[in-house]
Amino acid sequence: SEFSSRSGYGEYVQQTLQPGMRVRMLDDYEEISAGDEGEFRQSNNGIPPVQVFWQSTGRTYWVHWHMLEILGP
């Protein structure tokens, strides 16, 4: 990996993601499973900070930056 740390990767995702971009989950996290795909909606200063609309659940759920792989527009 070109990223030395999880936080470095998270910063990359945070700087790159734009609303509407497709993402894939890298880790299991509460209701969301690794491999689930969705659409980035928004972020804020909460914890976790990233709101994604997940195809698997049909609704939005908040996750962490480093848990997401960017699939593209």
Results as ranks from 00 to 15, higher is better:
H64W: 04
G10F: 02
A34E: 06
Y61L: 13
I70V: 09
R59Q: 12
Y61G: 13
G46A: 14
Y29C: 00
S56T: 06
Q14G: 06
G72L: 04
G38Q: 00
V13C: 12
H64A: 01
G72Q: 06
S5I: 15
G10Q: 08
W65S: 01
T57K: 08
S1N: 08
Q51L: 04
I32W: 01
P49K: 04
R41E: 02
D28E: 05
G38L: 06
E69C: 05
Q51V: 04
E37W: 02
I70W: 00
G35Y: 00
N45T: 10
Q51G: 11
F3N: 09
I32D: 00
Y12P: 04
T16M: 13
Y9T: 04
S7E: 07
F3V: 09
N44D: 14
P48D: 02
V23D: 04
M67K: 04
G35N: 01
E39W: 10
D28T: 14
L26P: 01
M21T: 08
H64C: 06
E11V: 09
L26C: 04
S56A: 10
Q14W: 02
D28G: 01
A34T: 05
G8D: 11
T16N: 00
W54A: 05
Q14F: 03
W62L: 11
I47W: 09
P19W: 03
W65T: 00
Q18P: 08
L26E: 02
I47M: 12
G8H: 08
V50G: 07
W65L: 00
M21D: 15
R24V: 02
L26M: 13
F3K: 07
Q18W: 01
H66Q: 07
F3E: 10
D28H: 05
R59Y: 06
T16E: 08
F3G: 08
G35P: 07
F3H: 14
Q18E: 13
Q42H: 05
I32F: 00
G58D: 11
Q18K: 13
V23S: 01
F53Q: 15
H66F: 06
I32Q: 01
D36L: 01
N44F: 07
M25C: 03
Q15S: 12
Q18I: 12
P49N: 09
R22G: 06
S43V: 09
P73L: 06
Y12R: 04
Q55D: 11
Q55R: 12
T57M: 12
S4V: 12
I47S: 14
V50C: 15
M21S: 04
W54L: 10
V13R: 03
F40T: 05
Y12C: 06
T60F: 06
V50K: 02
